[in-house]
Design a protein around this nucleic acid. Structure first.
Length: 282
DNA sequence: CGTTACCTGAAA
DNA sequence: TTTCAGGTAACG
């Protein structure tokens, strides 16, 4: 569930607490290890115990924990994963399934109700990052690049925005919010998004992600930050999970459909079907 | 390209 | 009982 703003909030929280710390022990539930690490716990221990964290980065929705041997522990929270900084004496989290014991009396605890989350060791982070498209919040992500990602595609524009190979970090919440802010109907074929609408969407994607970071992420259900506290951004959404409620802009009833296999929320008036281009000059 | 599966629990 | 869930990989 965590998208770029949630993952970035966790990264910022934990970086100063984790960098420079050495791993002294690793514990993983027997029923989780294969799903989590795709390897026996002994292998994970051999990779981590005795290593010191040298960096804590993020790319897309991946957390990148750099180690002093040059390798990287790549963590993905998927739907319900949580990475939490806790005193080693603290009681287990609900759905705690793993932990790394650090050398300063704290643990990194791993909680994951649905067990979709992953910890993978890589020799080179490019094994992960080379598959990811640019980040919408990166200044290097130009309008021309964005338009290139949409050009000629028959898939719904929402599906293209969610495709981490085209751009990385957007998920279901921020995509619906960006499409609302840009006034674009989510099921519009990507290639039919007008140049003016594409420009609005490019700016909106960046804006909603940055606002999400400012608000420390959105906690509709499972997301909490590195200390276990909820974010605030769910209080500011315009359409996500607001079906049946009035649009804050025009008062129309927010609708919910399925686009690209995901629940999709939009305002039927503020996000008109792509066709003529009068009102906004598209 | 869309659909299905992975896993568990909450809500309809 | 059925459906749905801030994600992605593996299908056909």
């Amino acid at each position: 569930m965590p998208e770029l703003p949630e993952v970035e909030t966790i990264r910022r929280d934990l970086e100063p607490l984790v960098v420079g710390r050495r791993v002294v022990a690793v514990e993983v539930d027997a029923g989780t290890i294969q799903l989590l690490a795709a390897a026996p716990v002994e292998v994970l221990r051999a990779n981590l115990v005795g290593r010191t964290f040298t960096s804590m980065g993020r790319r897309g929705k991946y957390i990148l924990l750099g180690l002093d041997d040059g390798r990287t522990l790549v963590v993905h929270l998927r739907m319900t994963g949580r990475l939490l900084w806790r005193d080693s004496s603290a009681p287990p989290e609900t759905y705690e399934r793993a932990k790394m014991v650090l050398d300063d009396g704290h643990d990194l605890r791993w909680s994951d109700l649905r067990k979709f989350g992953t910890w993978r060791m890589v020799d080179n982070v490019s094994e992960i990052t080379s598959k990811l498209g640019p980040e919408p919040i990166d200044a290097a992500f130009t309008l021309a690049q964005f338009r290139g990602a949409l050009a000629g595609r028959a898939a719904p524009v929402k599906a293209v925005l969610l495709d981490q190979r085209r751009m990385s970090g957007l998920g279901n919440i921020y995509v619906d919010e960006a499409l609302f802010e840009a006034g674009v109907r989510p099921d519009t074929p990507a290639g039919l998004v007008s140049p003016a609408a594409a420009k609005r969407l490019w700016a909106a994607a960046r804006a909603v992600l940055e606002r999400g970071i400012q608000n420390r992420g959105a906690s509709f259900k499972d997301y909490v930050d590195g200390q276990g506290n909820p974010g605030q951004h769910h209080m500011y959404v315009q359409v996500f999970r607001r079906e049946g409620k009035p649009c804050y802009v025009c008062g129309s009833t927010i609708e919910k459909t399925v686009v690209g296999g995901r629940g999709t929320h939009y305002c039927p008036k503020c996000q008109p079907k792509a066709r003529r281009r009068a009102a906004r000059g598209d």
